[in-house]
Simulated assay, not measured.
Amino acid sequence: MPWSEREFRRPRNAAALAEAIRGLTGPGRPLRLMEICGTHTMAIAKAGLRELLAPGVQLLSGPGCPVCVTPAGAIDGVLALSERPGLVIASYGDLLRVPGSVRGDTLLRRKALGAAVLTVYSPLEAVEAAAQDPGRDYVFLGVGFETTAPGTAACLLEAAARGLANFSVLCLLKRTEPALRALLAAPDLAVDGFLCPGHVAAVTGAEAFRFLPEEYGLPAVVSGFEAGDILYSVWRLARMHAARRPGLENEYTRLVRPQGNPAARAAVDRVFLPAASVWRGLGEIPASGYALRPEFAPWDAARKFGFAPGPGAEVPGCRCGAVLRGACAPRACPLFGRACTPADPVGPCMVSAEGACAAAYQYGAPTEAAAAHGG
């Protein structure tokens, strides 16, 4: 192996590494690899790796953006919740700009109209805000994958320890493995391997993705987030695919361990139970979300306020659901760059800082950007 795990990160080795990947892929059907992490999506777009590796390798973006996979019906329910007097919605910033089933109707718009909406960078900020403002109810929107689940669990444990009756969590968290299984069952997906999310694996452990090679015969590499990380991971996937020996490899050894973070996993298990959850583009998937355990019912916003997600639907023309399944490239959406831009987004894939459409818009080649605008 010509690259050590230090050398592959050096920019001067990128060309040689890309050439090695080309040597493992043929001129016919490209090697189709999917990343399932929004940070990977942005890193790939920013570094121009799709263009560098084409035509032998095709990099697809999957359901790796937690804001993007939150369905329109859930957003509709949150917007209805924001209308309650004396209630404050606390959320990460990206979620404020995600529309429900009506274009332009977002938490940010509701805030401008007078709703109490608080932007936080940590769920513990919402706990502190509730402690300092006992006259109002605070609802933290718990969005994310296994990466953010431990922090949400920690805020619930803190609220319970302090007996904060005016704080609760609306749990919209997602679990990665059930979604991947549903994705692989979709008739419109053909994929040859996976770049597995390093952030998720830091919590769950690399072994959480062992099912991909063992049950589906697909190579999988847990990858870091620098361009060199991703190139090296693609090379390892291409090598396994060429040898027809699918396996699980951990490229991100500087952070990810086989069994993950025991303390984080214990906190999640203490607070949550697996539950069915609805994903944008994938529908309802059994055991793909989290529900609060019964002992945390006093801090469960869904029970406390009778939260009911609406039926919800994509805004007409929006193809975010297909983008999240890897069935549609962002630029193939008829709204991309025309009716849907970061300044005026139609769907969440253009809203989120980890969305595939936002990445394509921000880092696409100038000629592509012009074409997207009809130029």
Results as ranks from 00 to 15, higher is better:
residue 99 P to A: 14
residue 121 Y to I: 12
residue 230 I to A: 02
residue 166 N to Q: 08
residue 198 G to D: 02
residue 71 P to Q: 07
residue 94 D to Q: 01
residue 147 T to F: 00
residue 94 D to K: 03
residue 182 A to S: 15
residue 345 P to H: 06
residue 128 E to H: 09
residue 27 P to C: 13
residue 205 G to V: 07
residue 124 L to Y: 00
residue 94 D to L: 03
residue 233 S to K: 06
residue 267 A to N: 05
residue 304 K to V: 13
residue 104 G to W: 00
residue 4 S to F: 10
residue 171 C to S: 14
residue 154 A to H: 09
residue 25 T to I: 10
residue 193 G to T: 08
residue 70 T to E: 12
residue 256 V to C: 08
residue 243 A to V: 10
residue 189 L to Q: 11
residue 290 Y to N: 07
residue 224 G to S: 01
residue 271 V to L: 02
residue 191 V to G: 02
residue 261 N to E: 10
residue 36 I to N: 03
residue 330 P to G: 10
residue 164 L to M: 01
residue 311 P to T: 13
residue 34 M to Q: 06
residue 370 A to E: 06
residue 94 D to H: 00
residue 321 G to C: 05
residue 6 R to L: 12
residue 46 K to Y: 04
residue 231 L to Q: 07
residue 48 G to Q: 05
residue 215 E to G: 09
residue 182 A to N: 08
residue 80 A to Q: 13
residue 164 L to C: 04
residue 214 E to Q: 13
residue 212 L to S: 09
residue 137 D to R: 13
residue 222 V to R: 01
residue 256 V to Q: 06
residue 142 G to D: 13
residue 96 L to Y: 01
residue 18 A to R: 13
residue 38 G to T: 11
residue 128 E to P: 08
residue 81 L to I: 07
residue 246 P to R: 15
residue 325 R to I: 12
residue 101 S to F: 05
residue 365 A to T: 15
residue 219 P to K: 11
residue 239 R to P: 07
residue 215 E to D: 12
residue 265 R to C: 04
residue 100 G to I: 06
residue 271 V to D: 00
residue 113 L to I: 07
residue 363 Y to W: 15
residue 161 A to L: 03
residue 332 A to S: 11
residue 287 A to V: 02
residue 170 L to I: 10
residue 241 H to Y: 01
residue 16 A to G: 15
residue 257 R to A: 09
residue 108 L to P: 02
residue 99 P to H: 13
residue 216 Y to R: 15
residue 308 A to S: 06
residue 267 A to I: 05
residue 269 D to K: 12
residue 227 A to V: 07
residue 323 V to E: 15
residue 209 F to M: 09
residue 324 L to V: 12
residue 224 G to V: 11
residue 322 A to L: 13
residue 252 Y to G: 05
residue 108 L to M: 03
residue 72 A to E: 12
residue 244 R to K: 15
residue 61 S to K: 04
residue 231 L to S: 08
residue 342 P to Y: 01
residue 281 G to E: 05
residue 77 G to V: 09
residue 55 P to S: 09
residue 213 P to M: 00
residue 367 T to S: 11
residue 114 G to D: 12
residue 167 F to H: 01
residue 42 M to W: 05
residue 137 D to N: 09
residue 337 G to S: 09
residue 347 G to K: 12
residue 338 R to L: 14
residue 126 A to L: 08
residue 137 D to P: 05
residue 307 F to Y: 14
residue 168 S to F: 11
residue 9 R to A: 15
residue 350 M to E: 01
residue 58 Q to L: 14
residue 76 D to I: 03
residue 348 P to E: 03
residue 269 D to M: 08
residue 308 A to Y: 00
residue 11 P to E: 05
residue 34 M to K: 10
residue 313 A to E: 10
residue 144 G to M: 07
residue 358 A to Q: 11
residue 247 G to I: 14
residue 233 S to D: 08
residue 349 C to F: 02
residue 252 Y to K: 04
residue 3 W to Q: 04
residue 96 L to C: 00
residue 77 G to H: 07
residue 339 A to R: 15
residue 243 A to Q: 10
residue 177 E to L: 15
residue 253 T to H: 03
residue 29 R to A: 11
residue 29 R to F: 00
residue 301 A to F: 03
residue 370 A to Y: 11
residue 306 G to Q: 04
residue 359 A to P: 08
